[in-house]
Every structure is written in structure tokens, then in C-alpha cells.
């Protein structure tokens, strides 16, 4: 079914967005437009990169599993007898 693969797409989007947030935080830190202490900021950035990657990885696993399920749920192609061609 399409469900598993679209779910993984959404999860990937979420993971990507979390990493994007980390990038924005990094930019703000570099441009000096934030008052958050740099050390704390780095902790958050690192955490978000890790968490985002974890979500991305999970999305990949869901996607792979959905491919596997696909193969399970669509029964193997019927042994359509080639004799019918003759």
C-alpha cells in the first residue's frame, strides 16, 4: 500500500525540518543575532542535528519496511501460464 511510503515521506520532512531549525540557529549564532549563550546554543544545535538525523533514519526504516510489506501484500504474480499465448 502507498501508506507506508507516504508516512515515511512525512517523517523525513519532519526530520529535515528539525535539522533546518538547527541550521537557522547556527546562522543566528554566527551573525550574533541571538542572546543565547554560545555553549548552550551549540548543545541545542547538536541535539537537533542528532534528533533530526534519527527521525530521518527512522523514516528510512519505515520506507524500507513499507517496500517489504508491498512485496508481501501483493501476492506473488500469479503463475500465469505462458501456454495461454499459444
Amino acid at each position: 500500500m502507498m501508506n507506508g511510503s507516504t508516512r515515511s515521506g512525512l517523517l523525513a520532512l519532519a526530520g529535515g525540518y528539525i535539522i533546518y531549525l538547527a541550521w537557522e540557529m547556527f546562522q543566528a549564532m554566527r551573525n550574533g543575532t541571538t542572546s543565547v549563550a554560545p555553549a548552550l546554543n551549540i548543545v541545542f544545535i547538536v541535539f537537533f542535528v542528532l534528533a533530526g538525523s534519527a527521525v530521518l533514519f527512522y523514516a528510512y526504516r519505515v520506507w524500507r519496511k513499507s517496500k517489504k510489506d508491498d512485496a508481501e501484500e501483493t501476492p506473488p504474480p500469479r503463475p500465469e501460464n505462458d501456454n495461454s499465448l499459444k
Binding site: A14, Y17, L21, A22, E24, M29, T34, V36, N41, A51
Partner: peptide, 13 residues
């Protein structure tokens, strides 16, 4: 701070 806002947003997601 905008960065804290991002942190919160990230945690909600």
C-alpha cells in the same frame, strides 16, 4: 530569543 523559539518548535515537532 528567536533561537529558543526554534528550540521549542523543534521539541513540539
Amino acid at each position: 530569543d528567536a533561537n529558543y523559539q526554534r528550540v521549542v518548535k523543534g521539541f513540539v515537532l
